[in-house]
Design a protein around this nucleic acid. Structure first.
Length: 521
RNA sequence: GGGACCGUAGCUCAGUGGUAGAGCAUCUGCCUUUUAAGCAGAGGGUCGGUGGUUCGAGACCACCCGGUCUCACCA
């Protein structure tokens, strides 16, 4: 028999013994009156023997999971862990009764107990609960990794035999949360960040809405979708890659400011900044432009940083980031000029290709038809690596997106002329915030010219036929909505997981998602 | 998808071709203020899987499974 089964078998036997003694190992409730953090932080040492004696009648009830047991014959110490921390429990045989004490000795690390008793400080100085009674609340039959915590004389904590196998931690997050102290803190911060973003948006009159996850057409981003099937309708459906096109329909419908936190699904590679399902918040604001979105974006992130960390500054790895507003704003063309000396407005398409080639920069030959896509590629390969502190990169070639308005400075004649000249690049009012070299989001002055919108989306279909995998299929219903008329609008998509990574100093996106996708065993 | 590395007891790990190891956990005994409690003893393994090389494989080779890091694609 394997060790694992043997450990479980022994615990099942103990479970039976407990039942035979008339004790329900899975009772229905327990009155909890306090928690470890409150008890320890509010404890004052009694000033006299009388006070010490009277304290014994001031009982509290706490509940938690047994994390460590130290049996000493007729007395036993254990630590229980509740939602706020750990507290030591002291149980004496002659006080609690022989049977009760014997049952206690059947308990294991991992069991959940409720303890009623009074507070005292041990000889070695730890505030503890002196048990008057206790109750088994849940018997655990699956052994937990035993992690030992040593406190050195200088007060430093050393963790021994940490449950550190990354794979097991992700696959069995419930165990990770129990035995690894800081894991829960990351997820508490995650929730605080999300709550903060919602507060900031609500404060600015944005209205929370919900749109479909299952979509018969996907769009709003460049990505490959997951395909699924609806049986009753007998049609294939896609898990959304973005909610952009639905939020715009709501702007058309008369909601002026909407936002939605969504899980997006993208059928692409997995690495430390990419999980196949990830969280994004998108917001759309009628009558605003991309500068309004920059203002909102930096307000949202600065506030989220303050609400989760107390300041606008945060340390990520060995760098310090400061999210204090206002953030730097840099045109893509200026970023390229600063970095490479290339003035993309002046030079020919071929000169960009030559530059890429002579500098050993790989690019997909499929994009060589488009000066705009070459520029975007040039930017990503040369400038991104320097974008550590928060910065808005703005004015992207229009070829990079079919959903964004051209710059306001162009006259209709200029646009027409540029469109027919492959050496001219139309720039669009798009920006991406960068932090720590990562794209943190995406924003446009949204395109609302239905004729141009149709033309650009049909262009996507063309490019899809030519072999690009991440282009949009044509969404006629969306085009109809734009034809009905969308007011001038700006919208933002923001990657929540990456923001949480930065604000919690997490190395991998899997550290900020409770249950990241793992290959089934 | 490419490359590098990893997989040995429940957990953390050692084991450079010759009888599978340590600490913690578990079990037995002792121990009424311990705290990585302690002391004495015991049990626990198809060494990720399948083939191969060899007198002999945990180790060497091939393939497979799972993972980590990294590059590519993307947010």
């Amino acid at each position: 028999m394997s060790e694992q089964n043997e450990l479980i078998k022994r615990r099942l036997e103990e479970l039976e013994k407990i039942r035979e003694l008339g004790i329900n190992p899975y009772p229905h409730r327990f009155d909890v009156t306090s928690d470890s953090e409150t008890l320890i932080s509010n404890f004052n040492d009694p000033e006299s023997d009388e006070e010490k004696e009277s304290r014994k009648s001031e009982t509290v009830s706490v509940a938690g999971r047994i994390m460590a047991i130290r049996k000493m014959g007729k007395a036993t110490f254990c630590h229980i862990k509740d939602e706020t921390g750990r507290i030591q429990i002291y149980i004496k045989k002659d006080e609690i009764g022989d049977i009760s004490y014997d049952v206690f000795r059947l308990l294991d690390i991992g069991d959940i107990i409720g303890v009623t008793g009074y507070l005292f400080r041990t000889k070695t100085g730890e505030v503890s609960v002196h048990a008057v009674s206790y109750e088994l609340l849940t018997k655990s039959i699956h052994p937990l990794p035993v992690v030992k915590e040593e406190t050195t004389e200088s007060g430093e904590k050393i963790i021994h035999d940490a449950f550190a196998d990354v794979e097991l931690r992700y696959r069995q997050r419930y165990i990770d949360l129990i035995v690894n102290e800081n894991v829960k803190d990351v997820f508490i911060k995650r929730t605080k960040i999300i709550q903060s973003i919602k507060r900031t948006l609500e404060k600015n009159k944005f209205f929370e809405v919900e749109t479909p996850t299952l979509q018969s057409l996907y769009g709003g981003a460049n990505a490959q979708p997951f395909v699924t099937h609806h049986n009753a309708l007998d049609i294939d459906l896609y898990l959304r890659i973005s909610n952009e096109l639905f939020l715009k329909r709501l702007i058309v419908g008369g909601f002026n400011r909407v936002y939605e936190f969504v899980r997006d699904f993208r059928n692409e590679g997995i690495d430390r900044t990419h999980n196949p399902e990830f969280t994004q918040v998108e917001w759309y604001q009628a009558y605003g432009d991309y500068f309004d979105s920059m203002n909102m974006f930096e307000e949202v992130v600065e506030q989220a940083c303050i609400d989760s960390n107390g300041t606008t500054k945060v340390t990520y790895g060995d760098i310090e980031l400061d999210f204090k507003r206002p953030w730097k704003r840099l045109r893509m063309s200026d970023a390229i000029l600063d970095k490479t000396g290339l003035n993309i407005h002046e030079i020919k398409k071929q000169e960009i290709i030559d530059y890429l080639n002579t500098n050993g920069i790989d690019f997909d030959p499929k994009i060589s038809h488009s000066k705009g896509l070459l520029i975007a590629n040039l930017f990503e390969e040369t400038c991104e690596e320097d974008l550590i502190q928060p910065v808005f990169i703005y004015d992207f070639p229009i070829d990079t997106t079919p959903l964004c308005k051209p710059l306001r400075e162009y006259t209709p004649e200029q646009l027409k002329e540029m469109d027919s000249d492959p050496e001219k690049v139309i720039f669009a009012e798009r920006f991406e915030p960068y932090v720590n070299k990562w794209e943190m989001g995406n924003s446009y002055t949204e395109l609302n010219d239905p004729v141009l919108q149709r033309k650009l989306l049909e262009g996507q279909v063309e490019r899809g036929r030519a072999g690009e995998k991440e282009t949009h299929p044509l969404d006629e219903d969306f085009l109809k909505a734009i034809e009905v008329g969308m007011p001038p609008t700006t919208g933002v998509g923001m990657g929540v997981d990456r923001l949480v990574m930065l604000l919690t100093n997490s190395h991998s996106i899997r550290d900020v998602i409770f249950f990241p996708l793992m290959r089934p065993l």
